[in-house]
Write a protein that binds this DNA or RNA. Sequence first.
DNA 1: CGGAGGCTAACTGTTGACAATCGTCATGTC
DNA 2: GACATGACGATTGTCAACAGTTAGCCTCCG
Lengths: 249, 249
Amino acid sequence: MAVFEHKQLWESIADQLRDEILDGRLAAGSRLLETELADRFGVSRGPVRDALNDLARQGLAEDLPRRGTFVSSLSERDLEEVYVLRRAIEEAAVRLAIAKASDDDIANMYECLVEAEEAYGRADLPGAWEADMAFHRTYCRMSGNGRLLALFEGLASQTVLLMRTALATHASLAWTPPVDLHRRIADAVAARDVERAISAVGEHYQYTQDRLNASGGRASGETAAGTAAATAAGTAAAAAGQRPASGSR
Amino acid sequence: MAVFEHKQLWESIADQLRDEILDGRLAAGSRLLETELADRFGVSRGPVRDALNDLARQGLAEDLPRRGTFVSSLSERDLEEVYVLRRAIEEAAVRLAIAKASDDDIANMYECLVEAEEAYGRADLPGAWEADMAFHRTYCRMSGNGRLLALFEGLASQTVLLMRTALATHASLAWTPPVDLHRRIADAVAARDVERAISAVGEHYQYTQDRLNASGGRASGETAAGTAAATAAGTAAAAAGQRPASGSR
DNA sequence: CGGAGGCTAACTGTTGACAATCGTCATGTC
DNA sequence: GACATGACGATTGTCAACAGTTAGCCTCCG
């Protein structure tokens, strides 16, 4: 469908930075200097500004006025926020997707599913995550709701970022994508059973949150400035800036 | 609480433009010239660009690369997209709000409710809409989910814009806010009955979409199919209640 | 008279520079 | 010795200007 559509400069920059953030090359909390990036990409600060703006809009960067932008360091609280929204919109998505899905769409959905299962079988965690997201994206796209899809993209990016940082800090959390729950979603959509699809999505997120509550509670204590973490939970940490903030629970 | 936090230039500009768009002073589809606005506000094009960016992010303006930005002219399809998302996130919102709401919160919610009813009684439609939105915003804020609230704000703005244009084009649509349905939501939240609250939200949007389909909805069997499916789906069965994050303040 | 092609004008994308602001460090005082 | 005060450096917010592209119009040809 697409004609050439030259990408704007800031778009290319944003894509590049997005990749680096999600790959982990740009660690959470690291500073994103406008001048430095402008120098690095060989452009002026304008496009860099726009790119950072886009990243902030998507939740991958945090912009503190007059102080700079930093790679988002998402906390468990952020994770919970993201998951609540993902569950909400994905339940709506399957509801619509079932009404609109063509056979091709459903076949495509299953393709993503087996790809994820294979990647997981190969112990290729990054690949499994990617395929996992592709699966979720499939029915979000099927919904035919552009706003919903855009919203999903942002939340998915934040999820990936968060998973990466979580895995980096307490490596014991060997996250296993819930492939069987995915299959239940897919089957329900294929059977065009709205109720079952919605509850399958709900179960998926229930499982996910349980997993994270189980593993996240114990390991997050080590955030340098003990005083801040102990007393003022969210707001102080956010204002203080770039250290990976620990959620309080 | 808030320290002074001086507003950035672009923020003031965005607020001003937002007001004008929602007031109807800037008609849907009208062009937003960077140079002209810069001249008008007595600033350079930079802050204006940022402001327009923000408006576009919120869905109030549309940015066509290399061609300019225009005030969004939302169609019925857009309306449907917005309402699907609003329903999804508001169902999630009441679920959380019930777990976290203090008595003050609930009192505040009822205040918004009676305000809306009074405004509607006075045949003050704009006032009723505003209070309507304030009511919805109440429990979105109660959810304690910042992302959810931000999302709601954007969708609410788009709703207002759309209502305005719809009312302008076919004036026969004398839109009546569903005050009784609002009260059902409020009562369910106050009673801390999750199931009832969620289904009340669902009914609210069901009613709203029916109203709009009745008055506006010709063209596109596609959207009609979508609404029909959503209708048939009924209210989602929520999985077991999730643990409220212990939390802020 | 209708359509294709080129020209002009205007606007956006991008650039480099200036100035205000914030954080950091050093100094002075209690 | 610890805290408050001041200056410095660095970085963002803002500005004015340049260049490329787009839309509209006019002309020319069939």
